[in-house]
Simulated scan of single mutants.
Amino acid sequence: MFKALIVEKDDDGKTHASVQEIGEDRLPEGEVTVAVQYSTVNYKDGLCVGPGGGLVRSYPHVPGIDFAGTVERSSDARYKPGDRVVLTGWRVGEAHWGGYAQKARVKADWLVPLPEGLDARAAMAVGTAGFTAMLAVMALQDHGMTPGDGPVLVTGAAGGVGSVAVAILANLGFEVAAVTGRAEQAEYLRGLGASEIVPREELTEVTRKPLESERWSGCVDAVAGAMLGRVLKQMKYGSSVAAIGLAGGAAIDGALITPFILRGVNLLGIDSVMQPYDNRVRAWQRIASDLPMDKLEAMIQPATLADLPQLGADILKGQVRGRVVVDVNA
């Protein structure tokens, strides 16, 4: 028997989450059983702990799109008992039972070995948010962005993805401009390495100008909507925007084709869910080498399974800063 956060749906369609003791016979099919040590909280987790957001296929359900721990049993030759592993994406925690439990059973293809220098707790301080941030930084660098090109903009900077992106970019020597709508987060963002704080309202007004003055050598954008429309007009010639979220809406408000054809701006879509294995390994190795652990520690908010119903509601309201690390065994 082990503990798990179980989300159930009533006949009237309402969902309820509670910590329960369940047996291994209830785990889904998979080649590898993992003794989970830590998980975390992402926006998708908030949806799955609550109303589901259309992500959960069936109930009862165990959410948790990320987890890290050690292999307990494996029928796949790539993993043996005791191996340290991390999982993000693949619709685990949505269509497949996830990491809000002391045990998880998944397909071997979904796992990645934890790189040296990164333990399970640190991996979940990173989680999908930090993994996505690293993918964004890698994409921008692959498209030629270097520290000498000028400031890099990070929108939604106080959130999970933004926090890690700021810390990684600053550690790599980039000048980082952090966008936030919460003035009280300025000191936190400067502590992560931001050299400039940009109030959100400066970038949310839709304008009819086809282009504005060139300001940014790159951008990690978690917002989309009107903000992305403005940012595209301010990008430097030949620069790139890595789009990783849509907190401001699924459209790009006020955007024109002009930045793309007159300034050669690139819009790079970043997907972390179905990312190929080799690039996952590359990203986790880069995280281990390029994310300063002291900055990561400053982002962490500890939690237990019992805290998750409230944290799930909080993250949907934008009230969670940095990274939540869930000790499933506490």
Score class of each variant (00 low, 15 high):
124 M>H: 03
127 G>Q: 01
128 T>L: 02
131 F>T: 04
132 T>E: 00
132 T>P: 02
134 M>C: 00
134 M>H: 00
136 A>I: 05
136 A>R: 03
137 V>H: 00
139 A>R: 14
140 L>E: 00
143 H>D: 06
144 G>M: 08
144 G>I: 08
145 M>R: 05
146 T>V: 14
146 T>C: 01
146 T>L: 05
147 P>M: 12
148 G>E: 15
149 D>A: 15
150 G>Y: 15
150 G>P: 12
150 G>L: 13
150 G>V: 13
154 V>G: 04
154 V>R: 09
156 G>S: 14
156 G>Y: 14
158 A>H: 15
160 G>P: 14
160 G>K: 05
160 G>W: 07
162 G>D: 08
163 S>P: 12
163 S>C: 09
163 S>H: 12
165 A>E: 11
166 V>M: 06
167 A>E: 09
175 E>L: 11
175 E>Y: 12
176 V>W: 13
177 A>R: 11
177 A>G: 09
178 A>Q: 07
178 A>M: 10
180 T>K: 15
180 T>A: 13
183 A>S: 13
184 E>S: 14
186 A>I: 11
187 E>F: 05
187 E>H: 10
187 E>N: 10
191 G>L: 06
192 L>N: 11
195 S>E: 09
196 E>P: 04
196 E>V: 15
197 I>Y: 03
203 L>M: 13
204 T>R: 12
205 E>N: 14
205 E>H: 12
207 T>K: 13
207 T>W: 07
208 R>K: 14
208 R>Q: 10
209 K>I: 01
211 L>K: 05
212 E>P: 02
213 S>W: 06
214 E>I: 06
217 S>N: 08
217 S>P: 06
218 G>H: 08
220 V>Q: 03
220 V>Y: 07
221 D>S: 06
221 D>H: 09
222 A>R: 08
222 A>S: 15
223 V>H: 04
224 A>M: 02
227 M>D: 06
227 M>Y: 13
227 M>F: 09
229 G>S: 10
229 G>M: 11
229 G>D: 07
229 G>W: 12
229 G>E: 09
230 R>M: 08
230 R>D: 08
230 R>Y: 08
231 V>T: 10
231 V>M: 01
232 L>N: 04
232 L>G: 05
234 Q>F: 05
236 K>I: 11
238 G>P: 01
239 S>C: 01
240 S>E: 02
241 V>E: 02
242 A>F: 03
242 A>V: 13
243 A>K: 09
246 L>N: 15
248 G>S: 03
249 G>N: 06
250 A>W: 07
250 A>H: 05
251 A>V: 08
252 I>Y: 01
252 I>E: 00
252 I>G: 00
252 I>V: 15
252 I>R: 02
253 D>I: 10
253 D>A: 13
254 G>V: 13
255 A>V: 15
255 A>D: 07
257 I>M: 01
259 P>A: 00
259 P>L: 01
259 P>S: 01
259 P>T: 03
261 I>H: 04
261 I>D: 00
263 R>D: 00
263 R>M: 04
